[in-house]
């Protein structure tokens, strides 16, 4: 169990994480999404003990994490740009982790080396970005962490490896109750993997929900009229987040459940109405728009 209590981290005048509090259950996969500079990577660095919180605390299985080797031994952090020495290979880097991580599994390491198509004796810095990422994942999973933190892990991975990674992660989550926190802008991938999503903007968690309930929060609705009613406030009483009109056809993003807004729409006598759930990306854009972070505002 990870408990985050009133966590704050500032860099000079910038507050990267602002009074954040939540818990992450064992055996869950949490997605961290949000704007650039929203505090996702900083949160991961705080969770892995790289940064010391300015205030608040992170408690891992009952132990304060920062500068605590015993608690850090249960965690593994794969940053967005992992560092490798010039002569580092998977094999010689494994020798370091083998000594330092108490749960290191040699069987797991051998198995992962055989699964991922990368050489464990080749110099890592000569590998492509995707292969370097795979090297990092082999090492990370071999430490059998109870808490795995992945920053932009899907970057550079081809679709097959992405699928393989997801499979491996799900396997470990279900079998060993491993907790995974993934920060990514690739919402499509997160959608498949996460059971919970935290949306971060300017250091705050705007939203922290199970992915199913998150999807249920919004509906994408298409409404067509034979003759559009002349009314300046056509959809009054309906929580329309976004609307786009093409002749007599309206594409709406509505916050709320279908049973709540459908009667109001049907009352307008539409020729056609259909509602479907939003993708995570669409939810992200809708939510961020609510905080003034949308394309129109930026442009």
């Amino acid at each position: 169990m990870i408990e985050i209590k009133n966590l704050t981290k500032t860099f000079d005048s910038i507050t990267a994480v602002d009074n954040l509090s939540f818990q992450i259950r064992p055996g869950s996969v949490m997605g961290l999404v949000g704007s650039n500079g929203g505090g996702k990577s900083t949160l991961l660095r705080l969770l892995s003990g790289v940064y010391c919180p300015d205030s608040g605390e992170i408690i891992v299985d009952g132990e304060i994490l920062y500068d605590n080797p015993s608690a850090k031994g249960k965690c593994f952090f794969v940053p967005d740009f992992p560092y490798y020495y010039n002569n580092s290979t998977i094999e010689n880097t494994a020798s370091l982790y083998r000594d330092l991580y108490p749960n290191w599994s040699e069987n797991e390491y051998r198995r992962l080396c055989s699964i991922f198509p990368v050489s464990n004796t080749a110099r890592i810095i000569n590998m492509s970005k995707g292969m370097q990422r795979q090297a990092a994942l082999i090492l990370a999973l071999s430490t059998c962490p109870r808490f795995l933190y992945l920053d932009e892990v899907f970057d550079g991975l081809d679709p097959v490896i992405r699928l393989l990674l997801k499979k491996l992660l799900i396997e470990r989550v279900s079998e060993r109750q491993m907790t995974v926190v993934i920060a990514s802008h690739n919402l499509r991938e997160l959608e498949d993997l996460c059971d919970r999503v935290c949306l971060m903007h300017r250091g705050r968690a705007l939203l922290d929900r199970d992915i199913d309930s998150l999807r249920g929060m919004y509906r994408k609705v298409q409404v067509a009229f034979t003759e559009t009613p002349e009314s300046p406030d056509l959809f009054r009483g309906i929580s329309v987040v976004n609307a786009w009109r093409n002749g007599n056809v309206f594409n709406l993003t509505i916050k709320g459940r279908e049973e709540d807004f459908m009667p109001s729409l049907n009352a307008l006598n539409p020729a056609y109405v259909s509602a479907m759930p939003l993708t995570l990306e669409e939810v992200f854009i809708s939510e961020m728009g609510g905080y003034g972070y949308d394309v129109n505002n930026i442009i």
Partner: peptide, 10 residues
């Protein structure tokens, strides 16, 4: 810093 800071060593 990311690499060494996350290692389980004081």
């Amino acid at each position: 810093v990311d690499m060494y800071g996350s290692l389980p060593i004081g």
